[in-house]
């Protein structure tokens, strides 16, 4: 997926609802209430923070190109896709920005240093200039290698085969994997610069970076699901630990199985209000939380409008104006809106 396709995919979801600058903030991973809320509203999780170092000028240029290509109506103001833009051939989105929030780079930095080390150690030449100059990365990798007994031939073989097998399982085009591996180096083999990769495949540097990120996300998804013991340590601090309490996690699991609030309460032998608390906690911690099975989007917006215009988060004040909603629904709407009720 190219940079322009990426922007257009976001615009497609925001069509007529937000201004042209909104996708920029999504791609940069801006942690403002509005952007975070939009992530949940419009299902923009794949895109969140995938180009954290994006420059406004680069973005504006791409928007102008989309405009000139007749895919969007205008380069500023509200987003308006043209007929051509809406009917374009859609490319599958393989990103998972919300889950990783840029931490895939930490994963890759560690991995590339480990690969470089294994490559040199196997050749009996353990002295080399590390590709990663950050000392925290170097310490981490040193520690990892020691724990993995890295100089043993079995460790090398396991590392190598798990690396290949897991990357093979990653759900993304082969070219994206090649770009990723081009960014690895070993004994006698230098990594390729973004410019070299761009020339090799005839794509822009930005497009190459997006492909590499997509490949990392797909790879990480594999590592998370399947057991690759040599690679699991690399996930440390890359997969965000869920901030949810264990009890809430249990509720979530039952909810995902299709149980209603009352059914969950019955199964778990807990009061309904306790289960409701779990959902409020979920809504607070996960901007992607889908509240529509509990109330309509209109109701949600009315709660937050009233809360905002009256400056009041008191449940009773809101309940007075919206008697048809339950306290639970109001609390849920406020939590999902990013406000602590």
């Amino acid at each position: 997926m190219s940079f322009n396709e990426l922007i257009l995919s976001i615009m497609d979801r925001l069509d007529g609802q937000r201004t042209v600058s909104a996708p920029f903030h999504v791609l940069k991973g801006k942690k403002s209430g509005q952007t975070i809320q939009d992530i949940g509203y419009f299902g923009l999780h794949p895109f969140f923070g995938v180009i954290s170092d994006l420059q406004k000028g680069t973005y504006d240029e791409a928007v102008t190109q989309l405009c000139e290509a007749g895919l969007i109506e205008q380069a500023d103001g509200p987003i308006k896709l043209t007929e051509k833009g809406r009917n374009r051939k859609k490319v599958p989105v393989r990103l998972d920005g919300w889950t990783f929030q840029g931490r895939e780079r930490l994963f890759f930095a560690r991995l590339s240093l480990a690969v470089q080390t294994f490559s040199h150690v196997r050749a009996g030449n353990p002295v080399f200039d590390p590709a990663q100059t950050r000392t925290d990365i170097q310490f981490w990798v040193k520690d990892y290698l020691r724990k993995m007994n890295f100089s043993a031939p079995e460790s090398y073989a396991a590392f190598r085969s798990q690396l290949t097998e897991s990357l093979m399982l990653a759900d993304c085009p082969d070219r994206s994997k090649t770009i990723l591996v081009d960014r690895l180096s070993g004994i006698g083999i230098g990594g390729l610069t973004w410019r070299q990769i761009s020339a090799e495949y005839g794509i822009s540097e930005m497009d190459a970076k997006i492909e590499a990120t997509a490949a990392l996300h797909a790879w990480l998804a594999v590592l998370r699901e399947e057991g690759f013991p040599m690679l699991i340590p690399f996930l440390e601090g890359v997969l965000r630990h869920s901030p949810l309490t264990d009890s809430t996690k249990r509720t979530l699991r039952l909810y995902k199985e299709g149980l209603s609030v009352d059914e969950i309460a019955a199964v778990r032998k807990l009061k309904r209000s306790t289960i409701e608390d779990h959902f409020v906690e979920l809504a607070m911690n996960d901007p992607a939380f889908d509240f529509t099975s509990f109330m309509s989007r209109e109701a949600y917006e009315r709660v937050n409008d009233i809360s905002k215009s009256s400056g009041s988060k008191k449940l009773r004040d809101i309940k007075e104006q919206l008697p048809e909603l339950s306290y639970f629904q109001i609390r849920l709407a406020l939590s999902a809106g990013g406000e602590q009720p």
Binding site: D129, R183, S185, I189, G190, G191, T193, W194
Partner: peptide, 21 residues
Amino acid sequence: VFYHGGMEQLDRVFIQQQFQN
């Protein structure tokens, strides 16, 4: 290949590797 201070750190390392190798 080319090399200058405007390149990102890892790209610069890669050029050094390629030259060294």
